[in-house]
């Protein structure tokens, strides 16, 4: 177990260095620069040169990368080229709003997906299963931005029941009720897609186990259907579900970029889009490295969970 973890840690480091290298050079290869949105600066080449010197953007790329890496090891993600503030500060400001949105969406998605997935597998081939399958297909196929706009159009514009944007009403004291009202539409959008996705995985996972001989054995023992389901079927069908859920965890951090954009949510997603468009190199780098680290960590977590669910899996 220990040697397994050490091996994985070394792999993680290699992945992170690789990701940062690729991101760094890709960003610099991309056309444009941090001032392309700033006409005043564009008119003034001398100012640009001065600014580049100040931010050390005039040095060779490999030197820039090296100093970025050294700073990162000290816990310094650099300073945003656009906001002129430490990247880490920008992240910690936006992360809570995003976590509120994505975390709630994940919970809501699982809350619906687990029972519906089980139901649809247990009632395979029935009318109910066909309806659930139809809706999951819709859920998977609807693009988030489009569903978001439709919901805004109906519930915010026409019916005026729910707010269309932002995290809370400006100028009013923050209240729980107000937050909930703002959460509903974006959470519906985000959880529809992922719930549909999870339902399909849960259903497939259960169906694979239901046909196994040991399930017939369990029934031949005279166990109740509920015992067969919860003790014998579910635990064996958890592995694919653990995989998809843990692979979606890193996106709790980046937020749903498109959905946040559509709902003007003051979170990470919208900021990442803006940072990329305005070539804010340090911000984009920081986000990519953090997400890469989260992906690797969540994978590791999934692997450890496999061993918990299935005693046949052992790591050495």
């Amino acid at each position: 177990m220990r040697s397994f973890l050490t091996k994985r840690m070394i792999q993680t480091l290699v992945v992170l260095v690789g990701v940062s290298l690729i991101t760094f050079f890709m960003m610099n290869l991309a056309p444009g620069d941090p001032f392309m949105m700033d006409p005043e600066m564009r008119m003034n080449p001398e100012a640009v040169a001065r600014w580049k010197e100040l931010r050390q953007l005039d040095r060779p790329l490999h030197e820039q990368y090296y100093s970025w890496l050294v700073n990162l090891l000290k816990g310094d993600f650099g300073i945003s080229l656009i906001h002129n503030r430490p990247v880490l500060e920008l992240i910690t400001e936006r992360l809570p709003a995003t976590l509120l949105l994505t975390g709630t969406s994940l919970l809501v998605a699982l809350l619906f997906a687990v029972p519906l997935g089980i139901l649809s597998a247990v009632k395979q081939g029935t009318f109910l299963d066909k309806w659930i399958s139809f809706f999951t297909l819709c859920g998977v196929s609807l693009p988030n931005f489009w569903l978001g706009m439709l919901l805004i159009l109906l519930f915010a514009y026409h019916l005026n029941w729910l707010p269309a944007s932002s995290l809370r009403t400006v100028g009013v004291a923050a209240s729980f009720y107000d937050y909930i009202k703002h959460l509903i539409l974006p959470v519906v959008v985000l959880s529809t897609g992922s719930a549909a996705y999870y339902i399909r995985y849960i259903r497939a996972g259960i169906l694979e186990v239901i046909g196994q001989d040991y399930i017939l054995t369990a029934r031949a023992k005279g166990l109740k259907e509920s015992t067969v389901l919860f003790r014998h079927i579910l635990r064996n069908s958890m592995i694919p579900v653990v995989t998809v859920v843990s692979l979606s965890l890193p996106f709790l951090f980046t937020g749903a970029m498109v959905t946040e954009y559509v709902f003007s949510w003051p979170g990470m997603g919208r900021w990442i889009i803006m940072a990329t468009l305005s070539r804010d190199y340090p911000s984009v780098l920081a986000v990519n490295v953090i997400v890469a680290a989260l992906v690797v960590l969540c994978n590791l977590g999934a692997d450890l969970l496999y061993a918990y669910f299935d005693p046949r899996i052992k790591y050495r």
């Binding site: 001989d213 040991y214 064996n236």
Partner: peptide, 10 residues
Amino acid sequence: EPLTSLNPVL
């Protein structure tokens, strides 16, 4: 088949 008729995770 005794392997497949026993539940692998219990």
